[in-house]
Design a binder for these strands. Structure first.
Length: 821
RNA sequence: GCCGGAGUGGCGGAAUAGGCAGACGCAACGGACUUAAAAUCCGUUGGGGCGCAAGCUCCGUGCCGGUUCAAUUCCGGCCUCCGGCACCA
């Protein structure tokens, strides 16, 4: 028998066997409990990196564990294949994005297969295939028909390096999330999805989510940014108009000393028309627009504004205050207008100080006087007419009610969430299925004409309009409505649109007339366990939740949340930093697999620490994992080859002790996997069992008693079985060596016997004044008196008690006795 | 600034309905095997003190305080690091 652990031969052998036996090809079986495990699919950029490997290995252990627990498991994989890198490759190297993408997919698929992940590859989904993106377009049309997709002109984030616009979610610190280039503001007509309509249910339905990391929910909550307040109308007698503000502090309305509009607010033009302010406002707007996003963020306190020559009237007391415009008021939030209360709002305070505007206190602290600075906490209302003396928290509603009677206010809720900008001025994405006709205007492409195919032959220039816009044969078309000449929309969709529904497609990837089969989705969805990096906490996860809610409201799916449980894994770092090509601290999974095998990589990744934490790559650690698997290999083989003879003497208690350990290991591994995916402690429990088996073997020469061999084989079989989800190839080989016929990967998970978890005798810690002074061995379940009797026989304990009377004693059954003297 | 999360040996990390701190692994040191090395196996390994010795003993989970017979775990107040958000009225 081979004594050397030939990982390469073993791994290829079992990968072939699994494929031949089709054990990971899942089929819907009505009535059988299902479990859908999904890892976030990758963008195909070449070889997967260690972060991918960690993600997919975690998912694989979960999938394999549930398969062996008897669930009907769905575990698919695919590729998020539209995106900029493919297009950049086309520009730089002249390779068509489709070819580049398929080459990269091929490389990634190869490594994933080499890792032995239990995917049902028949269900593979590739978002850049027309069979897929025709349905991405189909979904666009559904949203369009229901008023959830619309085109609007307005200020957008433009990345000069990527030559495209970005969604708010894709701008990080004023720079492009992808390439880090500072974003500039532009005014463009773009396509949006009305995600703001779902702001409330995106918040509300968080209740329906099972196990999601708190930090992800917090980030989403912050991003949606719900705040409660009121709309209040200020009066503009000159134009006989009202200007509405949104405020969360109606209780401070008596402290309004100025009023501010966003510089681009449409009312501004009407107010200054024909006045000397017209020219100065234009200059002011130009100066503000020139500021880049990065500059704006870097000097948040440096607010700029100007008086525009008018006054406005406070509805609560008729006070006349000056009307300003300022860059710190955003047109997109609330109503684009702010009532300035410098005494109680930090920003208004800074603004008033800079421009010498008056500061009027109307709230004092509960326990003192207003201190002449900005006080933004709740307190007691002062200088507020009939409301003076009220606690400010109560005053909020009272002020609104008072004004509401006159029709000048109403309670309101405001959100920070903006609509999702989905247009991209790039080639490698799903074309937006819209046609512009001179006669009929904006016309959606009929569903029967989908997909709107990307033309293969286009001109990839490094800059300027997108290739689609320059492709005449694409642009020029017929109007679906009147048949006359028309032009196609040349923007493509954000790739996050493609990834917002892929988890549905996996349920029935063969369906050609619909995006998915309803019965299949009803059976498999929602995803029971979703696993991925926390970098998608807002982007992908928010968009997918939105998509699901829309489909639910359109009656296409029966659930409101796509992912019941979410596990966010930590990063893989090296030298304390995230692995990246630019830092030169990457480790190639392909090379490590070649050197040590997939099982070693899997063990190392899982053993390094709890998976939700960042994990530091260590070459030494990989060797340790490799040593462990070698030891498993040797010990199990030694046990199989051990000769028996009834003449050999043996210690029965020792056999029982080993048996207890086997049962306890099953118990521990179950616990560690089920609660919180702590594979690191599960593996360490298995290592302890292995060490025990090794120790046992060492006490034997070449022979052992048949009873011992039986127990050793039981231990070996259990260890191999428990280790299987972690190191599937090695354990299949050993399973065969142990004489088993079935594939281990689909054999039932081992179970433990409650009665065999513990010894009949326990060790109880004896403390004197809270310090450990001895230990006694007593029968399980002994009473306090019995333990005390034993303890008092202990010489050391006697010494520490030193004849003093025991004042108090505390006893924890089978664990501890504390004597206080 | 606000919101999350975390601080435990030389290192990754165990142990929390309060009950033996440091499991398991890595590194290091000593030993066995070997002509030698690799591999493998055995032993030691938080810090200080006492002892020739088996051993004994004190301190120790970011810092200060509290509750308790007993605190890495609970409470109060700080410090540091990581992540997210940041003119949102």
């Amino acid at each position: 028998m081979a004594r050397v652990y030939e990982f390469d031969r073993i791994e290829r052998k079992w990968q072939t066997r699994w494929e031949e036996a089709k054990i990971f090809a899942s089929e819907k079986v009505e009535g059988k409990k299902k479990y859908y495990v999904l890892e976030m699919f990758p963008y195909p950029s070449g070889d997967p990196h260690m972060g991918h490997v960690k993600n997919y290995v975690i998912g694989d252990v979960v999938a394999r564990y549930f398969i062996r627990r008897g669930y009907n498991v769905l575990h698919p994989m695919g590729f998020d294949a539209f995106g900029l890198p493919a297009e950049n490759a086309a520009i730089q190297h002249g390779i068509h994005p489709a070819i580049w993408t398929h080459e990269k997919i091929e490389r990634m698929r190869e490594v994933l297969k080499r890792l032995g992940i239990s995917y049902d590859w028949r269900r593979e989904v590739i978002t850049c295939e027309p069979e897929y993106y025709r349905f991405t377009q189909w979904f666009f049309l559904q949203l369009y028909k229901n008023g959830l997709a619309y085109k609007k002109e307005g200020p957008v984030n433009w990345c000069p390096s990527c030559s495209t616009v970005l969604a708010n979610e894709q701008v990080v610190d004023g720079a492009c999330e992808r390439c880090g280039t500072p974003v500039v503001r532009k005014k463009l007509a773009q396509w949006y999805f009305r995600i703001t309509k779902y702001a409330e249910s995106l918040l509300e339905d968080m209740k329906l989510l099972g196990n999601w990391p708190e930090r992800v929910l917090t980030m989403q909550r912050n991003w949606i940014g719900r705040s409660e307040g009121a709309y209040i109308d200020f009066l503009l007698p000159e134009l006989n108009e009202k200007v509405t503000v949104f405020t969360t502090r109606p209780d401070t309305i008596y402290g309004v000393t100025f009023f501010v509009l966003a510089p681009e607010h449409p009312l501004v033009d009407r107010l200054i028309q024909g006045t000397p302010y017209e020219e100065r406002v234009r200059e002011f707007r130009e100066r503000i627009a020139r500021k880049s996003e990065v500059e704006r963020i870097s000097d948040l306190t440096e607010k700029e504004g100007m008086f525009i020559g008018k006054t406005i009237i406070n509805p609560v007391n008729g006070a006349e205050v000056p009307l300003w415009i300022a860059d710190y008021v955003l047109l997109e939030y609330g109503t684009g207008a702010v009532m300035g209360v410098p005494a109680h709002d930090e920003r208004d305070y800074q603004f008033a100080r800079k421009y010498g505007l008056p500061i009027q206190p109307v709230i004092r602290p509960h326990d003192g006087e207003w201190q002449g600075e900005c006080f933004s906490e709740p307190g007691v209302m002062i200088n507020s007419g009939p409301f003076s003396g009220l606690p400010s928290e109560e005053g909020k509603a009272k002020v609104v009610a008072f004004l509401a009677e006159k029709g000048l206010a109403k309670p309101a809720v405001s959100y920070r969430l903006r609509d999702w900008l989905i247009s991209r001025q790039r080639y490698w994405g799903a074309p937006i299925p819209i046609v512009y006709c001179d006669r009929c205007g904006e016309v959606p492409v009929p569903e029967k004409d989908l997909p709107v195919l990307l033309p293969p032959n286009v001109d990839f220039l490094p800059s300027g309009p997108s290739p689609l816009a320059r492709c005449e044969e694409f642009v020029n078309t017929r109007c679906p409505s009147c048949g006359g000449p028309a032009r196609r929309e040349t923007d493509t969709m954000d790739t996050f649109v493609c990834s917002s529904w892929y988890y549905l497609r996996y349920c029935s990837p063969w369906t050609t007339d619909r995006p998915f089969d309803e019965a299949d989705v009803r059976y498999w969805m929602p995803v029971d366990q979703y696993i991925g990096g926390v970098e998608h906490a807002i982007l992908h996860l928010l968009y997918s939740r939105f998509f699901t809610k829309v489909l639910h409201d359109l009656g296409m799916v029966h659930f409101r949340e796509p992912f019941s449980n979410l596990f966010a894994q930590g990063m893989v770092t090296k030298d304390g930093a995230k692995m990246s090509k630019s830092k030169g601290n990457t480790v190639s999974p392909r090379e490590i697999i070649e050197k040590f095998g997939s099982d070693t990589v899997r063990v190392f990744i899982l053993f390094a620490g709890p998976p939700e934490l960042d994990m530091e790559w260590s070459d030494r650690g990989v060797e340790g994992a490799f040593r462990f698997l070698n030891r498993v290999w040797r010990v199990v083989n030694d046990i199989v080859e051990m000769k028996t003879s009834i003449g050999v003497t043996f210690d029965r208690e020792r056999i029982q002790s080993l048996e207890r350990m086997v049962h306890r290991t099953i118990f521990r591994v179950n616990q560690d996997i089920e609660r919180e995916f702590h594979f690191n402690t599960a593996i360490s429990a298995m290592m302890e069992l292995l060490n025990e088996m090794g120790d046992y073997l060492r006490t034997k020469a070449t022979e052992c008693h048949p009873e011992e061999k039986t127990m050793l084989l039981f231990a070996a079989r259990t260890l191999v079985s428990l280790l299987n989800p972690v190191a599937p190839h090695l354990t299949e080989e050993l399973w065969e060596i142990l004489g088993e016929q079935e594939l281990l990967s689909v054999s039932p998970w081992p179970s433990y016997e409650e009665a065999k978890l513990h010894e009949d005798v326990v060790e109880v810690v004896v403390q004197v004044n809270g310090k450990v002074r001895g230990k006694v061995r007593v029968p399980r379940g002994s009473s306090q008196d019995e333990v005390l009797k034993h303890a008092l026989q202990d010489e050391k304990i006697q010494h520490w008690l030193n004849h003093a009377p025991v004042r108090k004693s505390v006893y924890v059954q089978d664990k501890l006795l504390n004597l206080v003297v």
